[in-house]
């Protein structure tokens, strides 16, 4: 049914639940599991390059932790999870990754942390659903599965 599943992982409660759903689906279908984290908190309109670099380091540190926890949880279920961090807008990065990587399912939490992007352009989930080249599973906040 599904061969390659892409999870949007931002450390939020719903993205953790998205990971649960994706792992459950991978167990059922034997699909490959990939997680993408997007650094989108880099300061816009910064005053110094160093300011951006320092935020970049902070974001890397944060997502390293998020992804390490996700890999541990996948490992506990004997699943391999491939992880990647990129900078940019979450929706754009997820759609591009799905397009170039030949994914057939994207699993994301309903609330991300897009902030201004969210206010002006809608949620990350809305934008992914609108532009994705494959099926999208949007996980709303509720009790954990699996």
């Amino acid at each position: 049914m599904f061969h390659k599943i892409l999870i949007g992982l931002d450390g939020s409660e719903t993205s953790e639940q998205a990971l649960d759903h994706a792992m459950a689906l991978a167990e059922l279908t034997g699909a490959e599991l990939h997680a993408l984290s997007v650094e989108e908190r880099l300061p816009v309109y910064a005053a110094t390059v160093g300011e951006v670099m320092e935020e970049e380091r902070y974001e890397h540190h944060y997502f390293d932790g998020v992804q390490a926890r996700a890999r541990t949880r996948a490992g506990e279920r004997r699943l391999e999870l491939r992880v990647e961090v990129v900078a940019g807008h979450a929706a754009h990065a997820l759609v591009e990754k799905a397009r170039t990587g030949g994914f057939d399912l994207i699993v994301i939490g309903h609330t991300g942390h897009s902030r201004l992007h969210h206010i002006f352009l809608g949620s990350t989930a809305d934008r992914v659903v609108e532009s994705a080249p494959c099926s999208v599973l949007v996980v709303h906040e509720r009790r954990k599965v699996g």
Partner: peptide
């Protein structure tokens, strides 16, 4: 920090 916009601006 809340908006993700540079503190300078």
């Amino acid at each position: 920090i809340r908006l993700g916009i540079s503190v300078a601006l």
